[in-house]
């Protein structure tokens, strides 16, 4: 059993590490988009060849899906002992 102190200082959950991870993530995201300057994405529908299409399309698709699920939750969400009795 680890003490509470040593739990708090695990390197992965330090706030400095988390900040660094966010910076690293944005850096990678930037690189992945900029790489499109060095190579052609072969598309089939015109728009999918445009600059950064997959980036914004993926992002927006996910946002929409999360909000659809939140909307659906208004109707279908129940406590997890709903069927028990």
């Amino acid at each position: 059993m680890k003490s509470k102190e040593s739990k708090n200082i695990h390197w992965l959950v330090r706030s400095s590490t988390i900040k660094l991870l966010w910076i690293l993530m944005f850096l990678i995201l930037g690189i992945v988009v900029l790489l499109q300057f060095f190579g052609h994405i072969h598309g089939h529908f015109i728009i999918d060849e445009t600059f950064g299409f997959n980036a914004w399309y993926g992002f927006i698709a996910c946002v929409i899906m999360v909000f659809i699920s939140k909307f659906l939750a208004l109707f279908v969400k129940r406590k997890d002992n709903y069927y028990d009795d």
């Binding site: 988009v33 997959n54 980036a55 993926g58 992002f59 997890d80």
Partner: peptide
Amino acid sequence: IAYLQLLLFAGLAFFILLPQMKRTLTISL
């Protein structure tokens, strides 16, 4: 490159929307 863009930006969406995804003790009908 196309797949990396698609997936990594989906990842960005996940972490930005994390407060919306908080787990609750629920099931879905």
